[in-house]
Structure formats: structure tokens, C-alpha cells
Write a protein that binds this DNA or RNA. Structure first.
Lengths: 177, 177
DNA sequence: AGTGTTATTTGATATTTGTCAAATCGCCGT
DNA sequence: ACGGCGATTTGACAAATATCAAATAACACT
């Protein structure tokens, strides 16, 4: 994003649609195609999937963060991931076809756009790393350091699910500072 | 790959270079750019990275499997991942520039190529899922079912590292069938 | 074949985290 | 302010896996 020219950036932001959505509104439902790259202008949104009967939180985006189902958006296929607001939120979104049009017209947008999946892959690998090699306590501390607002604003269930631990364990960690 | 026309497939395979490499040969060293998509025609290759002082196995490819550092190959940036043979192997590789040339000439190759990062993302997410929600024993059983040859041919250290458990635990699992 | 080296197995114990149950807190609507 | 209900905390205990140490097995080289 920082790599875009002013002109491209303007074109990019002009293409956004905006919505005011209530709490627990679905931006992408299960098996829907994710047609937008979303930007959470204000609010809180979780991205999760179903595993057995449970809902597994993959990420929680607060104010001024992008999110989407990369796989669904890029492969134009139904999404395993579900995207839902946790608070009343102001959401922006750029539609797939519009983004393709922009990418055709602006080479730097094209470049940015093309890098998204492999950038997401790096994030996924980092997260895997953290689940595999860090203790639950370290993961909690990292989240606390890097995203204190998530800890403050979001109910324990979602955080515990994101960290891959039980609510009880998370509660105990929180207790000893 | 199965989606390619015969013509494209021929063009694709003609573009491969081939090498006979000894055991413990590096196909990609740390911080090098991964310039090839590799195909392990015969042999065994591990892909791993350094975490603290340790080597973490990300995957082990045996005969007739593709592998590469997606992130490095697509972003043209230094690889965190290291690729090294575990046995004397016959390796094929298609060079980045050649693949780009092919993708320009053959639309189905372009499509295949473009999907690689988001396809890899799905695999990464599945693996994360398995690390997060399956027990070590389940992961071992799955590997045994899906890739029995890895268990047979590859030293415990690499397998244990891939499964995210200690050698001792793996040895014990193996003991009780 | 014999020796040194590395890989694997086995045992005892510690640690981390999960599970189940119950108590308490905090918020929402009236 | 009150009652109710979901969210969070706390406790006791169980399960899975790691750690450390030692024994044994497999292998590579002369």
C-alpha cells in the first residue's frame, strides 16, 4: 500500500464503497465468494471458520485494518472463512471487478495486488510457527504487546480461539499479569 | 497441472533443466532467492528453516513431487526457507524467467502459475489446523497413512521436526504400532 | 570384523494445558 | 435498583508431551 503512487492511491480509495453495519453482521457468509477486499475503518471484525462443531477465530481486525478471504477472493471460489462484525462498524470495501480494472490501469496497483497471496502465506507461516513453537503464554504475551486493543475490546472466547487455547487457560494467564 | 493442455504441458516440461545431485546438496541456501520451481524426479528433499538455533522441517518431498519457496520465488526476495537433498537425487527445475515466458505464451500456464500462492495458502492453513487441533499421535497417524514412504525413508529427526514433536515422543508412538 | 559415532529406544519425572464443576462478576432490560 | 443470564474466574484433577539421562542399535570407516 505504501508502495503506491499518489495517483494510484487516490484511484484506489475512490473505488471503495462504504457501509455502516450493526454488530454481528456477516460480511462474508460460509460458502459465499468473497467479492471484496474489506477495510475496517472503525469497529471490530472477526474472521473465522468451522472446525467440527466449533468456530475457530483466524484473526480479529480492529480500526483501520484490511481483511478478506484471500483464497476465495483470488480463486473466485466459495469461502471456508466467515467474516463477521463484533461491534457496530464502519466498513469499506473494494469490489473484485473494480480492483481488476484498477490493476489493469495502474501498474503499481497490479504489483501490490499480485503480492497479496504470497504475503498472506508468510503471515500464515509465521502464525503456524507461533502455534507450533511458542507456549500459550508466549502467544498471549505477544498478542498483548502487538495488539493490546484486541485484548481490551474483544470477548475472551474469540481471543482464546485465536490463540488456540481454552478460555480457562486464557483467564488464568490474564490473572498473573 | 492437470488443467494444462497437452501443448502447454509439453512446453512446460521441455523448459526443465535437470541435475543429479548428491546427498545433502543445497538447492536453495538461506537468504538466496529461489529461482526455480523444483521437481524431485527421484530422491528425497527437505525444506526447512532456522528457528532460534534449530532447524525446523517444513516439508519433505519424495519422488515425483514439486517444491519451492513460494514466497521467495514469487516475491523475488531472499528465502527464509532452505532446500536440501536428504538422499542422492535427480532434480528438475524450471527457471523463473523461463516460466514467466511460458506464462506469457500459454494462458493456461499463466492461470496455473497465478494460483500457486493461494493454493499454497490453503495448504498452510490446513497444516496449521492440524498442528492446532490434532494431537501429536493423530498427526503421526495421518502422515503414516498419507505418506508412508516418508516414515520409511527419512530419519526421525526430520519427521519429528515436521510433526512438531520430540524425537522421543515420535519413537514411542512408532513403538506402539 | 572392530571401533567410534550417530540414531533410536526406553525409563523416570516435570511441565503445560485441558476438562469438568462451581462460584462470582458484570451487564442488559425492565 | 433488581433479577437473570452469559462471561469470566477459580479449583481440583487428568492427559499429553517435554525433558533429562542412560541403554542399545545401526551405520560408516578403516
Amino acid at each position: 500500500m505504501s508502495s503506491l503512487s499518489d495517483e494510484s492511491r487516490n484511484a484506489f480509495f475512490s473505488a471503495f464503497k462504504t457501509w455502516d453495519v450493526p454488530k454481528e453482521h456477516f460480511l462474508v457468509k460460509e460458502e459465499q465468494v468473497c467479492n471484496y477486499i474489506f477495510f475496517v475503518a472503525k469497529g471490530a471484525v472477526r474472521i473465522f471458520y468451522h472446525k467440527n462443531e466449533k468456530e475457530i477465530t483466524e484473526w480479529i481486525a480492529l480500526d483501520e485494518e484490511f481483511l478478506l478471504s484471500i483464497q476465495s477472493f483470488f480463486q473466485r471460489s466459495p469461502s471456508r472463512l466467515i467474516i463477521q462484525t463484533l461491534e457496530p462498524s464502519e466498513i469499506w470495501g473494494i469490489y473484485y471487478d473494480d480492483l481488476i480494472r484498477l490493476a489493469t490501469a495502474h501498474h503499481d496497483i497490479e504489483t501490490w495486488f499480485r503480492k497479496l497471496p504470497s504475503a498472506a502465506l508468510i503471515l500464515a507461516q509465521n502464525r503456524m510457527d507461533s502455534i507450533q513453537f511458542e507456549t500459550a503464554h508466549q502467544r498471549y504475551q505477544n498478542l498483548l504487546n502487538q495488539h493490546p486493543n484486541i485484548i481490551k475490546r474483544v470477548p475472551l472466547t474469540y481471543i482464546a480461539s485465536f490463540l488456540g487455547i481454552t478460555i480457562e487457560t486464557l483467564s488464568r494467564m490474564r490473572a498473573k499479569q
